[in-house]
């Protein structure tokens, strides 16, 4: 564990708490893509089911895995049951096949062992890199977002960004390189570049998140 990974994980944790807080205080899931949230459940379940068969890593690791599976399922419950009327599928139109298809194909080709569990792990890495796209697509369609939604996305983006110095640190301190995680992680962080630009230049100065026409 190093400081980049710790703060990355804490940022990830914070992003989920921000999202739950937003939904519960506004009693609405307006502006949140159900598809992105459903993809995160798929990501966490396919990656963290290794709790059932892989060797134990740490209490921290186990706790976080359980938290991410549990909280992402809870968010789906909030969106589809508790505050269902506030969820508008008509603007959440990104096609999931475009994300699931490439993730399956990539996982079958690029994995560390051609076994069910390792292909599943690789699938979860590729899917996580793409899972934010329905949410970003929705932002682009609506052209604006509530500040709290942008804070959620910023915390989520910060988590991915912090994993990059973590990998550099691990490369120099342990000689560890994980090409699958690194390439997918860089792609995932890259998807946030436009968002971050507007977040830093507008939202943090108290302006509305609005995309240029």
């Amino acid at each position: 564990m190093n400081i980049f990974r710790l703060f990355g994980d804490l940022s990830h944790l914070a992003s989920i708490l921000i999202l739950i807080h937003k939904i519960q205080t506004s009693r609405s899931c307006r502006g949140i893509s159900f598809k992105t949230q459903a993809l995160y459940v798929a990501v966490f379940v396919t990656r963290y089911l290794d709790l059932l068969y892989a060797e134990h890593v740490s209490i921290y690791n186990t706790f976080m895995k359980l938290f991410f599976i549990g909280s992402s399922c809870y968010i789906l419950y909030l969106m589809k049951v508790r505050f269902r009327p506030t969820q508008d599928p008509s603007i959440d139109t990104f096609r999931l096949e475009y994300l699931l298809g490439p993730s399956v194909v990539l996982a079958l080709i690029f994995n560390y062992t051609f076994s069910f569990t390792e292909v599943l792990w690789a699938f979860s890495i590729y899917l996580e890199a793409l899972a934010i796209l329905p949410q970003l697509f929705m932002l682009q369609r609506t052209g604006e977002a509530e500040a709290i939604t942008t804070h959620y996305l910023a915390a989520l983006g910060a988590y991915r960004a912090l994993y990059i110095p973590n990998w550099l640190y691990r490369y120099f301190s342990e000689g560890t390189v994980d090409p699958i995680a690194v390439v997918a992680g860089i792609v995932q962080t890259g998807l946030y570049v436009d968002f971050f630009y507007i977040y830093f230049t507008k939202v943090l100065r108290g302006q509305k998140f609005e995309l240029p026409a």
């Binding site: 994980d9 990830h12 290794d50 890593v57 690791n61 062992t113 076994s115 390792e118 990998w167 995680a181």
Partner: peptide
């Protein structure tokens, strides 16, 4: 089973 070098990450 060869696992990812970073499978201890989240």
């Amino acid at each position: 089973n060869k696992r990812s070098p970073t499978h201890d990450e989240l």
